[in-house]
């Protein structure tokens, strides 16, 4: 489409071509709008009091949000959710970037290593949870090793890693699964950009750290941003790890929502829906802010 054709009225053939063009979007658009959009709209409607099948129809009301946001535990849960999501995304980013930087080097066994590090990517989170249980629990391997070396003589004396608030168990599972993901994204970009710019910088006398922060980082930044966005969003909405490894009440928000859904009081399902919508809003706001900061940063970089 050149600008010239836009100003003139479209010919019949062009119009047909256009329709044909957009016809190709119909399937993907239909699926996403009906399923994804439909789900979102239903969630919002229900959280606003629309559930005639429970005999509840007070639409539109903010009562469910008010009840939810009015309780102190909601904010504790939100803090807990954000804590797990942020800390694990950040750690996975650091570990993943370091790993990617090591992977571009040549070393013996690299082919094998490239298989090995991707393993967590290929298997479900539930496997990671099982590994956390067997390693990190008070009756787990690390606790047994501590007992073997005489550091402790009762499982209760071992560090509380699982089944506790702000514990490292959930974070360990996320990091285990997401470090390879971020490594892959960063490593792929590193391969793509080659080493010429770094070499040029080195010839101009830049140090190792300067090269990384001034030359390499800006180039891998888009990969970092998009992969951390995905990880962060996943971590906010993740259910199974906090459910199995978390410390119980107050739970992270997805677990809170699930408990509302499973309460024998069916009207609490609407509060569960309000919880779910709250998760969406919070994650939306944070991700948009993140993207906005990144765009501003990029623009500034571009101007420089």
């Amino acid at each position: 489409m050149t600008p010239a054709t836009k100003t003139h009225p479209l010919t019949r053939r062009e119009r047909r071509a256009r329709i044909l063009l957009f016809a190709q979007f119909v399937p993907i658009f239909a699926v996403l709008v009906i399923l994804f959009g439909g789900a979102l709209v239903m969630a919002v409607l229900q959280s606003l009091g629309f559930a005639p099948w429970f005999g509840v129809n007070t639409f539109p009301t903010l009562d469910y949000f008010a009840a939810l946001w009015g309780s102190a535990t909601f904010w504790t849960s939100l803090g807990l959710t954000l804590y797990y999501a942020t800390v694990s995304t950040f750690l996975a980013l650091v570990l993943g970037t370091l790993l990617a930087l090591a992977l571009v080097k040549t070393f013996r066994g690299k082919t094998f290593y490239k298989y090995l590090y991707k393993l967590p990517l290929m298997i479900p989170y539930t496997v990671g949870i099982a590994l956390a249980v067997i390693m990190l629990g008070n009756g787990g391997m690390l606790s047994r090793l501590a007992a073997f070396f005489g550091v402790i003589d009762d499982p209760g004396q071992f560090l509380q890693i699982l089944k506790t608030h702000y514990g490292w168990g959930i974070i360990a599972v996320y990091i285990w699964k997401q470090t390879p993901f971020i490594t892959l994204a960063v490593y792929a970009v590193l391969l793509g950009i080659g080493r010429e710019t770094e070499e040029a910088a080195a010839i101009l006398g830049a140090g190792r750290r300067t090269i990384f922060f001034r030359v390499t980082l800006p180039q891998i930044l888009p990969g970092i941003v998009s992969s951390t966005l995905i990880c962060f969003a996943f971590n906010i909405g993740a259910f199974e790890a906090p459910f199995i490894l978390g410390g119980g009440f107050p739970d992270t928000l997805p677990v809170v929502a699930w408990r509302y859904f499973n309460d024998s009081d069916y009207t609490l399902q609407l509060r569960g829906m309000a919880t779910v919508v709250s998760i969406g809003i919070v994650s939306g706001v944070i991700l948009f802010a993140y993207l906005a900061v990144y765009r501003t940063f990029e623009r500034r970089m571009g101007r420089n």
């Binding site: 008070n138 499982p155 506790t164 119980g248």
Partner: peptide
């Protein structure tokens, strides 16, 4: 784990069996 202020209540009978087996 009650000393920490947040005691650990197992979710089901399997969980409590595991705690019992390990002498927790």
């Amino acid at each position: 784990n009650g000393a920490s202020g947040s005691p650990n209540y197992p979710e089901d009978n399997k969980a409590i069996d595991g705690l019992f087996l390990n002498g927790e």
